[in-house]
Design a protein around this nucleic acid. Structure first.
Lengths: 338, 338
DNA sequence: TCTATTCGCGAAAACGTTTTCGTAAATTTT
DNA sequence: AAAATTTACGAAAACGTTTTCGCGAATAGA
């Protein structure tokens, strides 16, 4: 398309293709004077090397893939921001793929990534039954892969996550200390590592404080906001309903807020709420929402940095780093009467 | 890397490379039986064609680029969501580039895009002095380019935007009808088409209702939240400060909220606020924020669709479509006393 | 039966790079 | 002055596809 390639440059300069190529790559084989001429002409003609020819020849794409469940999500948007920052520094391009929380999409996306389109892959998994064959296949092609946030269980692989168990525990403990006796856990359906680990932390806290673990207080939600609101409303209005809620994802807390507004349920007087969330307006909500905030940007950065270590040092064969960056509990009105 | 290519497939099958290639592309030159054998073997060996070889040969990347100022932004995250949706349908890959609101980054990103890495480009510009040389250069390489949301002035090009002028007018009119006499306009610095057009709408509304256009009520903000808060606080606390605010971008409205919370300025009693915003929790804020919501997802979708029309029909030489999708004013507590 | 046509496949060129190798001329060493 | 080395460049192969062309063999037409 662009039409300007090494051949034309060489013609214009009265040099061979190989000499021009070497001059542009600053090879010692080319005299300083010739290099200057070539650089000047390349600049003048606005030469850009064809990435496909280069990629084919060098078997390198200078591109990484990021596979995430969704993009219109404060967490993932921040994570991508961090990833892009590192990629830019390294001069890499970033391909983004969305799985839309659909396992089939994840499988097909990953299979398309085997062809050498990218030099490395960053993934945050979508909900599944735990089948990781596609992930192992990808790993076995030799391409560096780093998992972040939602990672596979029972698989040797490098991961960057937050301390979900501890965060779930701390959040639950906070609710208990705020006076809650019946704490519900809101989660999405399907197996997702973060959701599971946060729930384990939640259950551990209940156990520590001798509160019963009740299945009716573990609410499995869907991908549809409206039906989630119905589920939440039903749980809140039932006899012996919860006096506290720990939401494992932001949007379920939002749905809870809507239900409470509509049903005139007073937060925090009647119901205390804590949610995992990267919402920047948490403190402006009515009432301000207590959050456990995962360091999304940092997780993105760290996972990209780890990936580039693997890409550059070719040491991915045996890397199984487990990087954990803690979340922070930020207490606001929604969980405290004061 | 992946190591499995046409040559190996051909060896395994006892066929020539060209026959295997043709069989995979379902050529009429190959018998049905052979095709079956080839397909089966390709499946079995998990063959993925090398995208660089194909791209080089066909001079086609099946990839588009999206260039935006930032990603951790409700508007752009939604727009990308819409773009990705269409790209997935078309079987295209999406490269994302962030300019971080820095004109230099925009220029260099775009120059890198000339090399044939992508088949089309979607751009939302960052603030600038209006210099569009780099954009014209890009266009002149023949690559299809569609601008969305923040588009260049004075340049023949296809654009997908919202009705910024009308939206600015409507929002201002709404504030006036809610009783505001001194309405401030919050904007970022630098030339950005949306900001300018919204401001023109704001000014037109003031004029229509015989209110003065005062430069002290047009607040140019920076990229730093803290200094923006200082600027806003200063304006609000001055003698004869505004009784209404129209914010051209979400984050300035958020900063205003913080200032009001801190300074105990009552919204909407003392100050009414309307903001352009895609914030999904607008109605849960304290108080609920009146928004003009641009159809970010649809703008993303439409611009991607337009781009693919240009890519597929090669009709981009003379395309200068101007698609406009209206924003919607959603009145909430922050601008109404009732 | 002889000639056209179709069918099924292979050889080879081309895409634009990078890189290895070869080689004249210039320079240095002996 | 002859030999060795260095300098500066060009020729050509290679990366993995796609695609044009050619060509036997099988089939159809006369």
């Amino acid at each position: 398309m662009s039409g300007i390639n090494l051949k034309k440059l060489a013609q214009e300069l009265g040099l061979s293709i190989s000499s021009v190529s070497k001059a542009l790559r600053d090879s010692y084989e080319i005299s300083a004077e010739t290099k200057k001429r070539v650089l000047a002409m390349a600049e003048k003609m606005n030469y850009q090397p064809n990435p496909f020819a280069r990629g084919l020849r060098k078997n390198k794409s200078t591109t990484i893939a990021v596979v995430i469940p969704e993009i219109a999500n404060n967490y993932f948007a921040l994570a991508i921001d961090g990833i892009q920052l590192i990629a830019e520094q390294k001069g890499y391009h970033v391909l983004t793929y969305l799985t839309h929380e659909d396992y089939k999409n994840e499988v097909s996306t990953i299979s398309h990534l085997q062809g050498g389109r990218v030099d490395g892959v960053l993934i945050s998994l979508c909900g599944s039954n735990g089948n990781v064959k596609h992930l192992i296949d990808l790993q076995q092609t030799g391409i560096p892969v780093v998992f972040f946030d939602r990672v596979p269980e029972k698989m040797e692989c490098p991961t960057v996550t937050t301390d979900d168990f501890a965060a779930g525990f701390t959040a639950t403990e906070h609710l208990i200390k705020s006076g809650c006796k019946k704490i519900a856990y809101l989660r999405q359906t399907g197996f997702v590592s973060t959701t599971e680990n946060r729930m384990k932390g939640y259950q551990a806290a209940l156990t520590k404080y001798h509160l019963p673990i009740q299945s009716k207080f573990i609410l499995e939600c869907t991908n549809d906001d409206e039906s989630n609101q119905l589920l939440i409303k039903k749980m809140l209005k039932q006899k012996g309903g919860p006096d506290g809620i720990l939401s494992s994802i932001e949007k379920l807390a939002i749905s809870t807020y809507y239900v409470c507004h509509e049903q005139k349920i007073k937060i925090p007087a009647q119901l205390k709420i804590v949610s995992f969330s990267c919402l920047r307006t948490a403190s402006l909500l009515s009432p301000a929402l207590t959050t456990i905030t995962p360091p999304a940007f940092e997780i993105g950065k760290e996972s990209a940095e780890l990936l580039f270590q693997m890409i550059e040092k070719k040491s991915y064969g045996n890397r199984t780093d487990k990087i954990v960056i803690p979340s922070s509990l930020i207490v606001r009105k929604s969980s405290s009467d004061k």
